[in-house]
Design a protein around this nucleic acid. Sequence first.
RNA 1: GCCGGGAUGGCGGAACUGGUAGACGCACUGGAUUCAAAAUCCAGCGCUAGUAAUAGCGUGCGAGUUCGAUUCUCGCUCUCGGCACCA
Length: 817
Amino acid sequence: MTIEYQFKEIEAKIQAKWNTSNSFLVSEDSKKPKFYALSMFPYPSGKLHMGHVRNYTIGDVISRYKRMNGFNVLQPMGWDSFGLPAENAAIKNNIAPAKWTNENIDHMRSQLKQLGLSVDWDREISTCNVDYYKWEQWLFIQLYNKGLIYKKTSMVNWDPIDKTVLANEQVIDGKGWRSGAEVERREIPQYFMKITDYADELLDGLDDLDEWPTQVKTMQKNWIGKSSGCEITFNLDKSDEVIKVFTTRPDTLMGATYLAIAPEHKISNNLSKNKKDIKSFIDECKKIGVSEAEISTAEKKGIFSGLFAKHPLTKESIPVWIANYVLINYGEGAVMAVPAHDDRDFEFSKRYQLPIKQVIHSVDYDESKAYTGTGRLINSDKFNGLSSKEATEAISEKLESLGKGKKRIQFRLRDWGISRQRYWGCPIPMIYCETCGDIPVNETELPVTLPENITMNNSSVGSPLNKMTEFYSCVCPKCGKDAKRETDTMDTFFESSWYFARYACFDQKNKMLDDRVNYWLPVDYYIGGIEHAILHLLYARFFNRVLSDIGLIESKEPFKKLLTQGMVLKDGTKMSKSQGNTVDPQDLIDRYGADTARLFIMFAAPAEQSLEWSDNGIEGAHRFLKRLWNIVNDHIKDNSNRKEDINKDLDKSIKELNFKLHATIQKVTDDLERRNSFNTVISSVMELLNFLNDSDKKRKLPYSKKQEVLENILLMLNPFVPHITAELWTYIKEGTDIDRMAWPILDKSALVQEEIKIVVQVNGKLRGNMIISSDQTEIEIKEKAIKIDTVKKFINNESEIKKIIYIKEKLINIVIG
RNA sequence: GCCGGGAUGGCGGAACUGGUAGACGCACUGGAUUCAAAAUCCAGCGCUAGUAAUAGCGUGCGAGUUCGAUUCUCGCUCUCGGCACCA
């Protein structure tokens, strides 16, 4: 054993050993319980960042811990390798996206291996590989034929100079990021997946996910946004046309003073053909991006349409406005505006001096703002006096009887648009024929391979597929005439929605999935960034259900337990390439080793909270490992002059050490099993090591006792710092392998204490403490407490004592006054 | 704007079920060792007053519930994540 902790040599040696002995390759094994630990796979952006280190270390700690507990653990790794950054890099560096991506993968793979992850690398997958994405094309065709995928038009950001569609991220302050041109909204035909067919299932399924964080379930629930309400039909004056609105508050109908329709509403569109001012208003609205954040933060603006609608109950004419705050995607793309009881309508009414009519009573009603709560109805004719709930019912029924309304459920969730006007993605397997329309590619013709040998540069933005006749010209599978292949590719969320299943059958050449998925799925423990709380996790849940419904997967939900790790922030914001505030973990690994990097990232903050990056503290983690190295080293040297002298004094300190050891095992196990609290695991083990060191200094401990505690410390640290613990293990326990050792076992008898220290408070303030024995009665303890000197001086007279509260084996609070 | 988090010493954080606020670590200060430095080891370290014992104050802000609140309730502020084409 070397005197110094030579992490470089140790880590290389241990990793080589894992590699040659195939330590982490797994297969289905009916004799052991299975455990599928999965970290969200990385996008190969170039090099590892701290978020990756955090994510994969958490996953590896769990995997190693579970392995020590006798599970057959699968921990796979792969690459989410289609996506926009490859195209950006291609344009910037004049390199093909495929080449750029694969080079990044090679580099990042070697970095991940340096971290010492217990990954089954045989199962590595990359989504830009045709062996992977051909199954998406196959699935696309199945779902298209089932009607779960369909085509409709929808809005995109259009850059009029570059003549290309922009991602929301590429729109900066309403302008194209490259051209600087004002971006326009444009409507184009695209493919959609009917996720709304699964809205109820996805909502109800959340109830069964009892190992998911509540906030993630709440976010998903709100995102799906199931609400019951009423669809109300307003007839237009002097026209046969109607405007339908959806409202969750039919009780406020009598306060509706105008209607507001979206700029994209059919009626807005028709009006714009003849009215210049309306056309220019709608054009103005198109300059607001397509994202909901932009729409809802934009100043509320509108224009009177010139139309009036008849209120279905009062028969009054109310004006119809075109307003930029009405979302075309929700409900009917039109709202009945009740300014007195809706914030947005209120703001709009104030701006355009539209009438505000209060119809819900509230004791502290304030005319300067909307009252959005419920209450008794006023100013509502025969509905006066009803509660909001009663009125909702009564008004809905009245409307139904008039044929002007019906109760219905509305979801906020929209169908998932999966078409992308981009090159670096999975080609959508559709063909457009002038005679036959949209026809899926014949399954026997799959895969539709994405040509990889292309060039992208500054002078040719936009998808190169549009210019490649060899790619898009084809014949119609139905009639055989010349036809054009779809050049759009799929949303990259498509790839990440089923990769967890493919790991189980990574080498299956003939099918998308086989029976092995039912051994491994569902994923037992899924770890990934909180930023994926909604989209990725919802799409994956949706996909799992779809795959289940077509008989490919048995389980309904893909992820049994979820841990959403916090972001690694730098300068207070998300580390990202585009912001240029990334920290390269390679420096850490080179200077301190993987174990130090792993230990520090797990120690620095609770896994679920954001971690503001700072270089300080790394030294501390490294120092701890050096200390561990030195203590074990000293212990081994001690072996030669060992002597086991046990006297009475020593007996007591052994008891204390035993207590500390088993209290630590108990806490650490609970932290890992129940609390997902890794930082406290490390601090507990640090405490134990400090305690061992201190008691050994006070009074030399017997060799065997020290050996026992050190072994347990190494075992508990092994999931976090697997290299140094494996190396130390070979010295402390020659001839055995820590990778085959079991997790320490708790001895409850070590936790029994005869004497307990409790604290004494007077009126909730700490005034003293005392030692009690476990067999003392409550009355004895209380009597003893009021006699403590430091306590007595806060009690003038015992008659002042109102009561004494005793919390078992914790504290006494003497209440005076 | 809407949805979901977060806020505790100089810094990262601990306090799990309402019960000793500041574990563990960083930084800093003093000491040992050293020719010297690094490394290592030992000690101290919330704020205010005090030589000290000790006392008072203290968990973003303002209220409330309670014998007792970092923890529960209500109202705010700031901040982070998401908002459907970044992944």
